[in-house]
Simulated assay, not measured.
Amino acid sequence: MASSSHRHRSQPDREFQWRPVRGPLFAVAAVATVALIVTLVVAFRPGGSSDTGSDRAVAASSSSSKAGPSGTATDSASPTPSKPSSAAPKPTASSPARASASATPSAASPARRAASGTAGTSTTTAPAAGRIRPGTTYDGVATSYDVGNGDGACLFGPTDDVMTAAMNTADYETAKACGAYISVHAGGKSITVRITNECPAPCAVGQLDLSRQAFAKLAPLSAGRIPITWSLQSPATSDTISIRYKTGSTQYWCGIQAIGHRNPVARLEVRTSGGWLALTRTAYNYFLSEQGTGCGSEIRLTDIYGDQLTVPALAVRPDVAQQTGLQFARH
Rank of each mutant, 00 (worst) to 15 (best):
V38E: 07
D307I: 11
P200Q: 00
A283M: 03
N285T: 08
R300F: 08
R113Y: 09
T310N: 01
T121H: 04
A329S: 15
N149M: 03
R98V: 15
S86E: 06
T169M: 03
H6T: 13
P318M: 00
H331N: 04
A186R: 11
G135R: 00
A2M: 03
T39R: 08
S50Q: 11
L277M: 09
D13Y: 05
P84Q: 02
T237Q: 00
G224D: 09
R9P: 15
P127G: 04
S183P: 01
V58G: 12
T229A: 02
K246A: 12
R212L: 04
A186Y: 10
A59T: 09
P200N: 00
R267G: 12
A219G: 07
L208I: 02
A313Y: 08
R45T: 05
L314Y: 01
G152C: 04
S242R: 12
Q17E: 13
V141N: 12
T137Q: 00
T192D: 13
V147N: 07
S211Y: 05
L279H: 10
G71S: 00
T302S: 06
I243W: 02
I182L: 10
L210M: 07
G275I: 02
A170W: 06
G130C: 06
D55G: 13
T137P: 01
A329W: 11
A60P: 03
T240C: 06
F156W: 04
K90I: 15
H261D: 15
